[in-house]
Nucleic acid binder design. Structure first.
Length: 465
RNA sequence: GGCGGCGUAGCCAAGCGGUUAAGGCGAGGGACUGCAAAUCCCUUAUUCCCCGGUUCGAAUCCGGGCGCCGCCUCCA
């Protein structure tokens, strides 16, 4: 499997499972100060799919996604609400976990929270001070960027050129404007932990280094996140981790493209966002996943209700095929040679696409192609009972992507079933009596209620939309 | 200004030196129907932002434009 790594600026080979059975993967998680918006969900969905695909190919993936529960934004939110940072973090952690479920994300192996690792962060900072890569200034501790020669290698930035733009906030005691805070002395009313430098809290970029080291060891196989984290967040992580160990922090760096709205990045600060939970409520889990997976993960993707609706319809189309296959596939009827071969080729395409930089749009096209092959086979007079094999293949391949695992038909209650059945029966009588006016009225009324009727040679069937 | 990316049919989107230029949505025609819906069949890019160049051969490589976006400050 090849993956395009930001550090190499090109594809990097992930050794096959026989050589490298266990993969350590770290994905930057949310800061829990609000519900996540749908843009935040992109890496969660894409890298969840990657993780599950790797597992389906025989890797054992240890998947870590942190929860940042110490942060300025949490403190600010608590102030606004008149509650405490702990309460805000606790509440939005719960909401976040619920959102992950709604997005169909498999729970990570570990979901470490920054608050639980403050002691370890202090140890790391002490070690950096001891090595001369960090210095103490009035209760703050800063990382000395100039002490780490590789600084800028991930983002392609030259420290000498960064200098012009860098600035020092009032109250900071940096020796060099490029330096970043590892530990911040507590201001009145802020959460604080005791430390060798006095009460305070860890800075922005330390938690991922500490938690990934604790759970995955010194070198991660894959480190992932949004491309807005490349600088300074991931650059600063590399500086800390590699200054300390002298070893490579992560082998492969994956950065997903941003979700945009009319071409502009979706961001809370721009006010152009939608909460993930609201989008899921509107279009459903699989439409959201399909929406993301229908665009290569590294490219920007534009959000709109039309785009989500289109994804919903694409998903629905596959489900219709699965439903048709399920109805007919009571027995095992083999596919004719040539159709079986076509499916086989599409399966190879599916894996080929995913192994080449996790090209999910190409993989989805292969899945659609399978459904199309099945439809064409039946249209040409083939035995629809043979469709079962294709349906099973689609479901199996799509499982790691979190797609097409649901019931083919939406669930319905027994009473609803009977009531609609009664109306359908009545309409049938009216049609027999050629009272089409009233029959159509029933059909239209039901349609407006989301019940769609289809008259087939075997009688009228209906689906809920 | 520096670094990175993008520009393929009406729309979304694969493609990474030779393919009939995937797939989805939409649209048009046909079959089916009392009319529909759904479904199926067919059609929908002689061409890949523009201009040069390399090559037997380029959407794909190189040079130069034009347009859009991200990062350079917290940000998925």
């Amino acid at each position: 499997m090849r993956l395009w790594s930001t550090l190499e600026r090109g594809p990097v080979q992930l050794p096959p499972p026989e050589q490298k059975g266990r993969v350590g993967m770290y994905v930057c998680g949310p800061t829990v100060y609000d519900y996540i918006h749908i843009g935040n969900a992109r890496p969660f969905i894409v890298f969840d799919a990657l993780r599950r695909y790797l597992e389906s190919r025989g890797y054992e993936v240890v998947y870590v996604q942190n929860i940042t529960d110490i942060d300025d934004k949490i403190i600010n939110r608590a102030r606004e609400e008149g509650s405490s940072p702990e309460e805000v973090a606790e509440r939005f952690t719960r909401e976040y976990l619920e959102d992950l479920r709604a997005l169909g994300v498999t729970p990570p192996t570990y979901q470490p929270r920054a608050r639980a690792y403050v002691d370890k962060m202090i140890e790391l900072i002490e070690a950096l001070v001891a090595k001369g890569n960090a210095y103490v200034a009035d209760g703050d501790v800063y990382f000395s960027v100039r002490s780490f020669p590789g600084y800028g290698k991930l983002s392609g930035k030259d420290p000498d050129e960064l200098l012009s733009g860098a600035r020092v906030e009032p109250g900071e005691r940096k020796r060099d404007p490029l330096d970043f805070a590892l530990w911040k002395a507590a201001k009145p009313g802020e959460p604080k932990w005791p430390s060798p430098w006095g009460p305070g809290r860890p800075g922005w970029h330390t938690e991922c280094v500490v938690m990934s080291r604790e759970l995955l060891g010194e070198t991660l196989d894959i480190h992932a996140g949004g491309n807005d984290l490349i600088f300074p967040h991931h650059e600063n992580e590399i500086a800390q981790a590699e200054a300390l160990t002298g070893m490579s922090f992560a082998r492969i760096w994956l950065h997903n493209g941003m979700l945009t709205v009319r071409g502009e990045k979706m961001a809370k600060s721009l006010g152009n966002f939608a909460y993930a939970r609201d989008v899921v409520r509107l279009f459903g889990t699989e439409a959201v996943r399909y929406f993301y997976l229908s665009r290569h993960w590294r490219k920007p993707l534009d959000f709109s209700h039309e785009a989500l609706e289109e994804a919903r319809k694409a998903v629905e189309g596959v489900y219709r095929f699965l439903a048709e296959a399920d109805l007919a596939a009571a027995e095992d009827v083999p596919l004719p040679e040539e159709v079986a071969t076509e499916i086989k080729l599409l399966e190879e395409k599916f894996h080929g696409e995913l192994e080449d930089d996790f090209n999910t749009p190409g993989a989805l096209a292969a899945l659609q192609g399978m459904a199309n092959a099945g439809k064409r086979f039946v249209a040409a007079g083939g035995d629809r009972r043979a469709l079962g094999a294709i349906a099973e293949k689609i479901r199996t391949l799509a499982a790691p992507l979190g797609l097409f695992q649901g019931e083919a038909a939406p669930s319905r209650s027994g009473r609803t079933e009977e009531l609609i059945g009664l109306l359908v029966e009545l309409r049938g009588e009216l049609r027999k009596g050629r009272n089409f006016e009233l029959a159509d009225k029933i059909r239209d009324k039901l349609a407006s209620l989301g019940v769609e009727l289809r008259d087939t040679p075997q009688g009228t069937v209906w689906i809920l939309r």
